[in-house]
């Protein structure tokens, strides 16, 4: 109930914000703008889905931005320089990402280190390796890239739902199913509730941790591939700081930074809110694009304060009915 409340608030902010934007710039309310918004934020949506799992489980993954950067460089090099077929290159890079995530999860679990530190190390490591691979921007000219960027579903009103936007939507739906309908998903929430209690209840905490960070890194890899489609290039400086945008989107979407609560749909709304702010600033034209950061910062602050307030309220109100609930009181 608490979780759905914060998602509802996020949805309300999105709708209200969009309405305000549309009042000022009526052109915003078109399928074209909305479809562009999805395309522009496709990679963010994918990586944020992974981050949602990590944060609900009580962890954090600071390495995702660097993993995206690494993926674009590796993919570009593999296709353009090493002559590897694009699909094989994708498979290779995803395997590498999976291994990378598994390694971080293993270190976190085995050495009982804070995820913050381990993934921070991962962040430097992945970024460093991508610089090692190449420091320049490598354009990708493979035919599959132009084919994919040409593909789009035409929407009424002139919008084009691009392949990468569709990819994001599909991945989000799959992640939502995984999180909300499977044992794996339940275990993710359990870990965020209490690691010790989860272990006592016989859940293999170690393998869960490893799989969660694997998932996050693989999704970051997918986001990297999507990003390479979006920019048609590989560059070691791409997606710098994206991990923070991602965390912001997840938290604005109602996921508790302390773990145990959250949803993929909320994260999707959080991504859309950030995209909306960006779109507004583009429409305005006079504002510096740094205003996106300022607006995101303010929103983040408001949402965290709101969550705390809601939690406190829920705690207070749950005290009263709790005593009256046991036995015999049919609900």
């Amino acid at each position: 109930m608490k979780a759905s409340t914060s998602v509802a608030i996020t949805a309300f902010v999105l709708v209200a914000g969009f309405a305000l934007c549309a009042l000022q710039f009526p052109n915003i309310a078109s399928t074209r703008v909305v479809a562009n918004l999805l395309t522009d934020n496709a990679f963010l949506g994918i990586v944020a889905a992974g981050m949602t799992f990590v944060i609900i489980s009580g962890g954090i993954d600071l390495s995702v931005g660097s993993v995206i950067g690494f993926t674009t460089v590796f993919t570009a090099l593999a296709i353009e320089r090493w002559g590897i077929p694009p699909l094989a290159a994708f498979a290779m890079v995803l395997v590498l990402c999976a291994l990378f995530g598994a390694a971080m999860g293993t270190v976190i679990h085995v050495f009982e280190l804070p995820p913050f530190i381990v993934t921070l190390a991962g962040m430097f490591l992945a970024r460093g390796i991508s610089f090692l691979l190449s420091t320049e921007s490598i354009p990708i000219t493979a035919p599959i890239y132009s084919a994919v960027s040409d593909f789009a579903i035409r929407l009424p009103g002139g919008g084009r739902l691009t392949a990468i936007a569709i990819a994001m939507l599909v991945i989000l739906v799959l992640c939502a199913l995984l999180l909300h309908l499977t044992r794996f998903g339940a275990n993710v929430y359990a870990l965020g509730g209490s690691r010790a209690a989860t272990a006592l209840m016989g859940i293999p905490v170690g393998s869960m941790t490893i799989r969660i960070y694997m998932l996050s890194s693989v999704l970051a890899g997918l986001a990297g591939i999507v990003f390479s489609f979006y920019t048609a290039a590989g560059y070691s400086l791409s997606a710098v700081g994206v991990e923070l945008d991602t965390i912001a989107a997840v938290v604005i979407g109602g996921t508790l930074l302390t773990g145990g609560q959250g949803s993929v749909i909320g994260t999707f709304l959080g991504v859309l809110i950030q995209g909306m702010i960006q779109t507004y600033i583009n429409f305005d034209g006079t504002l510096s694009s740094w205003w996106t950061k300022i607006a995101t910062g303010v929103l983040l602050f408001v949402f965290i304060a709101l969550q705390q307030g809601l939690m406190a309220l829920a705690r207070r109100s749950s005290l009263k009915p709790a005593g009256a609930k046991p036995a015999g009181a049919p609900t």
Partner: peptide, 27 residues
């Protein structure tokens, strides 16, 4: 109590051994 306050009572009772069909928990 060493349970998970953020999960439902049912999840707490069956965590790790929920009834599933095709990998989906039969809520």
């Amino acid at each position: 109590v060493n349970l998970l306050p953020n999960l439902s009572v049912a999840q707490n009772l069956f965590l790790g051994r929920q009834p599933t069909r095709f990998g989906v928990v039969r809520e």
